[in-house]
Structure formats: structure tokens, C-alpha cells
């Protein structure tokens, strides 16, 4: 069960894994995520499904080696098994034909954005994708994105590749050049906050996909709550995508810090 059949480093700290999960491969839709657990003492962590292969019965996940659990996951090799894997969870993206889509992906957020870009393209939309990373080495999935986008703009913080600047600079130029019907933004919470402010200025409907802290992922615990349009929502069952113009990103940023101390202590212990 849940055997890893492929493993590839996309950058120094970002790993792509293909895992056997035939039922999930068949039933998942763009925007869905899974929860997995490594070892009997592991925690449950949510990860977006980046792609799936129905014939081989596998799903792909992309993970950044940042915390205790992602580190454990990244040490697994081809042939190893993931202890627990459940999904697909969350509401799928509302993929439809609207015209032109602007897709904004920052950092490892490019991974969850990929299946959505692919689905919007397959639905007959023109897709313009803006990707951002701190530097060239950290940019992932560029080729795959180019394959499914009509146009790709790359921004890097240090100018080591593409254009130097923030994602919003690249996106704003796209918006000024052509009529954009809908946007989707996935990346660090700060990036999504500024992306939402930008598209609000131009009144373009925008979805953002949130990476809240979760435990069960099925609506049971409420750890993933987020304020959207003044109301509390659960990212796991009401999301993970919400109207970006209504998300309280400041609260979300604060809530992502809830376990920073505990995580640091755990990492210190691991070393």
C-alpha cells in the first residue's frame, strides 16, 4: 500500500514523489489534497495532489523539506511505503470555460497550481501563468507549466532567471496587456495577500488556495479555520479554495504561526 514508485528532486529542497494510490488517482480532481502520515508516531500533514496517473494508479505530490514531517517524508526512497494516505479531500477547483485565466504561483505553491492550470487549459481557456521563486534554483515545474500554458512569465527575487521582481509586478503587466476573466493564486500566504490586493484593484474574480494547519482534514477538528467574508470557514471541507478578495489573510498568517515554537523545539530535537 502507498508505495513510492518515483522520487525526483525538483530543487535542492523540493521533492516530487509518485505514490501508488489507485483509488485516489481515479477519484481525485484538480484542487483536491491528501493527508499522509509517516511512521506510527508521525503527524497528519496535508499535501495537494500535483498530478495523477490513472493507468499506473499513482498520484504525485510535491513537498518542500521544511519541517519535521516533510523531512521524514523526503528521506523515504523508491520502494518505501507511506504509513497512511487518505484522500482525495477538499472541494475540487471549479474548472470551467471563462476565457482567459491568469494563474499565479509562488515558490512551492506552483505545485498545487499545476493541476489547476492543466485543467483550465483542457477546458478550453487561454491560460497565462506567472511563476515566482526566490532564485532560479528554486523554480519548479517550469517545463510542465509551459506545456499547459499559452504564456509563461517568470519572476525571481534576485533576478537570477526571468525578470527580477515580485510576482505582482509580472501579473500586473499581464493584466494591463490583456483582458483577464479570472485569476487563481497559490503560494505563500503573504504572496496571496498581495496578489488578491492587486486583482481586487482591477476587479478580477480571484481564487486562492490555502495551506492551513490541519489534523484530520475531514471537518472534524477546526484547526484549519479561516475567516472568509466575515464568516469562519474550514479550509478542509469548505475549501481549500476561497474567494481571495474575502479572505482575512492577516488572520491566516497569524494562525500559521500557532505551532512555530513547538515545531522549532521538535526540529532541535531531531538534530
Amino acid at each position: 500500500m502507498n508505495r513510492i514508485v518515483n522520487k525526483q528532486y525538483l530543487s535542492e529542497n523540493v521533492v516530487r514523489m509518485e505514490i501508488e494510490a489507485p483509488l485516489i488517482a481515479r477519484s481525485r480532481k484538480p484542487g483536491n489534497f491528501i493527508i499522509l502520515r509517516i511512521g506510527e508516531k508521525g503527524e497528519r500533514i496535508p499535501l495537494t495532489i500535483a498530478d495523477s496517473d490513472i493507468t499506473n494508479g499513482t498520484i504525485s505530490i510535491i513537498v518542500q523539506n521544511v519541517g519535521v514531517s516533510s523531512k521524514k517524508l523526503c528521506t523515504l526512497e523508491i520502494g518505501d511505503e507511506v504509513t497512511d494516505l487518505v484522500g482525495p479531500l477538499g472541494k475540487p477547483t471549479n474548472v470551467h470555460k471563462v476565457g482567459t485565466i491568469l494563474a499565479m504561483g509562488g515558490g512551492v505553491g506552483i505545485a498545487p497550481l499545476f493541476p489547476i492550470v492543466k485543467a483550465f487549459k483542457q477546458a478550453g481557456n487561454r491560460v497565462v501563468t506567472v511563476l515566482a521563486a526566490r532564485s532560479k534554483d528554486l523554480l519548479i515545474l517550469e517545463d510542465e507549466m509551459r506545456e499547459w500554458s499559452d504564456e509563461v512569465v517568470v519572476m525571481t527575487d534576485d533576478g537570477s532567471y526571468g525578470e527580477k521582481g515580485l510576482i505582482t509586478a509580472g501579473a500586473e503587466r499581464v493584466i494591463q496587456n490583456e483582458k483577464i476573466d479570472e485569476c487563481i493564486a497559490i503560494g505563500p500566504a503573504v504572496m496571496m495577500k498581495f496578489a488578491a490586493m492587486l486583482t481586487k484593484k482591477y476587479e478580477i474574480p480571484t481564487q486562492a488556495s490555502l495551506n492551513s494547519i490541519m489534523v484530520d482534514g475531514t471537518g472534524m477538528c477546526g484547526a484549519c479555520r479561516v475567516t472568509v467574508g466575515g464568516k469562519t470557514k474550514f479550509t478542509c471541507i469548505d475549501g481549500p479554495e476561497f474567494n481571495a478578495h474575502e479572505i482575512d489573510f492577516d488572520e491566516m498568517l497569524m494562525r500559521l504561526q500557532a505551532y512555530v515554537k513547538e515545531e522549532k523545539d521538535a526540529q532541535a530535537e531531531q538534530q
Binding site: 472534524m220 477546526g222 469562519t232
Partner: peptide, 20 residues
């Protein structure tokens, strides 16, 4: 399995969670 909250100000601060 869906915890209820009271929807009062500040309820989403860190350190406030459902019993679940």
C-alpha cells in the same frame, strides 16, 4: 464530527481550539 464555535470576537486567535 463538525465542531461548533460561538462566533464571538477573537475566537480565531491562536490558543483557542475546539474540543475535537
Amino acid at each position: 464530527g463538525l465542531p461548533r464555535f460561538m462566533n464571538i470576537p477573537g475566537e480565531n486567535y491562536n490558543g483557542i481550539m475546539s474540543s475535537n
